[in-house]
Structures are given as C-alpha cells and as structure tokens.
C-alpha cells in the first residue's frame, strides 16, 4: 500500500489576472522506503504540489483532489490541529534555502528541540540528548557546541544538515526534500545526498526528492515523475526513464544535457513554458514539441498505461508497433 496517495490534485491561485492553475490533475504515489524524484523546470508545479500536501499554501490557493491520503488518513478533511500533529512528526519537509528557512533569532538547538517538544513526550533532558544524537547522525562534529550556535554562525551545508536533523527528529515516515542541495556546492551536495539516502536506507522512510538536476535524479532516485507546466507528463523507474523516455518532453530534456551532447551544438527545446494567458488548448507541450500535429494542438492527450511510462501524450515515443 502506498504511504502517500494523491489522485487528481489541482491547485489554482487567485491572481490579479484571474485564476492561475499551478498544478493540474497530478497523481502521486509513494510507498514506504521508496525514493521518488519529481523533476521539472521552474513553474512546473513540483514544489506547489508538495506544499499543498503539507498544507503550507497561502489562502489564495484553491486545492482540489479526488484523493489525498497519508497512511490511510484523508488529508483533505483534517482540521488544522490534527494536520499539525502529523506534519513535523510523520510527514516532514526540507526546503531549498537553509539560510532562510531557519529562524535567525533562535539557536539551532532550540529549533531542533522545539520539534521534539511539539511531537514527543520527552522531558527537557531527553530532548537535549536526542538533539545531540541527531546532529551527530547528520554528520556535524562537536554537536553539543553547535547546538548553541545561531544559523548565521554556520555554513550553508551545516545549516542544511540542521534542517535535516529537524526534519528527521521525530522519525518521519515520509520526508519531502524540496531542492535540498541546489544552494550548495557540489562536494557538499554529494555529502547531503549520501546522508539523505543513508537515512532513508536505515530508517525505511519514504523520500520525495524535488529537483531540476537530472544528475541528482540519476544517482539517487528509484522512480521519477516528470512535471511540465503543472502536469505530470511521465512516471517511470529511473533506469527506464533515462534509457527509453516515452514523453517527447522528457526525451528533449535529456537530449539538452551538455554531458549527453555528441557534438558542439546542443539540442534545444524551442520556445518557453506556457504562462498564465497562453496555455494551449490541447497538449501543453505541443507548441514546443517536434512531433506535434493537429490532434495534439486541439485535444488534451490521455495518460498512457504504465508500460508507456504513464506518458501524457497522444503519440508516446518508443511505443511497441501494435499500439501505434
């Protein structure tokens, strides 16, 4: 059974120019102990769909879903109080900018202990011990002293470790990491990714990794969901996705990677992601797709079966001949 199960999630924002659909009928499934990567460019709705799951969107957002359940509990019907009991304990999130997601006015120790105070019945001595244990676990040497430090006294990598320590403080069953390494240098990125996958292995928690970096996806994820302009366009195990992408967007994205380039000129995707006012009628990728025809431009494409990577496309690539 999946830990987090979302069906047909749509998020719209009320903006000055009318309703803006940031997430458009997205399905998400994550099982226990699974690593799912959600990839997409900016504006593809990958962060918003997870923020909606966490209930962290502002009031301007309208969230609708046919199903949105975490461990059997319906997240749509929960009261704020009940939701806060789950969030931070069983369901935790790490954000991109460690510097701005920690409170600069409190020590790291206070912030880690706060999570423990909210969600566990440990006494203050035990909370302190657990905080030391957590910092040691995420690879911060001299933990006792670091607990007394303020965020500005630590480096970006250290702060991200503190964020991770806070997120895993109550042994969550699902951790959502939103671009956890984008603000960090590559050698630190490698350390943080190893830490996250190590923790995932040791504790058996589910992990959702939101990223735009195909390299990070290839090295850490087990399954990948590709999002484009708010829609999920493909969903495959990682090796299959890189070997046989079924959606033209995924294929084009992979071809645009400099390290996959075979000649000096890189493959490009012409045009830009559609905005609020120029959303195409049919397939959202059709204006930029080299295979698009009249049907693509007018009829929204169906979601193909799992063998075809659940590609949202009329003409999925690498399809067996029979289907064509």
């Amino acid at each position: 059974m999946s830990l987090l199960r979302i069906r047909n999630l749509t998020v719209e924002f009320a903006t000055g120019g009318g309703q803006f659909r940031a997430v458009d009928s997205v399905d998400v499934d994550v099982g226990e102990g699974e690593i799912l990567a959600i990839v997409g460019e900016s504006g593809s709705g990958k962060s918003v769909s997870m923020l909606a799951t966490m209930g962290l969107l502002p009031w301007t957002a309208t969230i609708t879903a046919d199903e949105m359940s975490f461990d059997g509990q319906d997240l749509r019907r929960l009261s704020g109080r009940a939701r806060r009991q789950i969030i931070g304990r069983d369901l935790a999130m790490i954000f991109q900018e460690p510097m701005s997601s920690l409170n600069p006015c409190f020590t790291t120790g206070f912030q880690i202990r706060e999570a423990l105070r909210q969600h566990t019945d440990l006494n203050s001595r035990q909370r302190q011990d657990r905080a030391v244990e957590l910092l040691t676990m995420v690879g911060i040497p001299d933990a006792e002293r670091r607990l007394k430090a303020f965020p500005h006294q630590l480096s970006g990598g250290m702060n991200q470790r503190v964020m991770i320590a806070m997120a895993i403080a109550c042994r969550p069953r699902l951790l959502i990491a939103d671009e956890p390494t984008t603000a960090l240098d590559v050698t630190i990125q490698a350390q943080i990714l190893d830490l996250l996958t190590g923790l995932q292995r040791d504790t058996g928690m589910g992990l959702i990794l939101i990223t735009h970096d195909m390299g990070v996806v290839a090295e850490t994820a087990e399954r990948v969901a590709v999002q484009y302009a708010g829609q999920k366009v493909e969903d495959q195990p990682v090796a299959d996705l890189f070997a046989t992408p079924h959606h033209p967007y995924t294929a084009a994205l992979l071809a645009a990677l400099p390290e996959r380039a075979t000649e000096r000129r890189l493959a490009t995707i012409p045009g830009v992601v559609p905005g609020q006012h120029d959303r195409p009628q049919g397939c959202l990728f059709s204006p930029r797709c080299q295979f698009a025809d009249e049907r693509c431009r007018t009829v929204p494409p169906p979601v193909q079966p799992a063998e075809l990577g659940r590609a949202r496309c009329h003409y999925p690539l690498h399809a067996p001949e029979v289907a064509a």
């Binding site: 490698a190 350390q191 195909m214 290839a218 890189f242």
Partner: peptide
C-alpha cells in the same frame, strides 16, 4: 570535484570520493 558531480546515467556505479569537512 569530478567524482562529486552527479552524472545523468542511472546505475553508473561510480566510486564517489567523499570529502570530509568544508572549505
């Protein structure tokens, strides 16, 4: 630095040199 750069090749099975500490 080279070994820490993720490569878009799943299952490349490369040994990563892990650096201790920070700059």
């Amino acid at each position: 630095l080279l070994s820490a750069t993720p490569r878009a090749e799943p299952g490349a099975g490369r040994r990563r040199i892990e650096l201790k500490g920070e700059l």
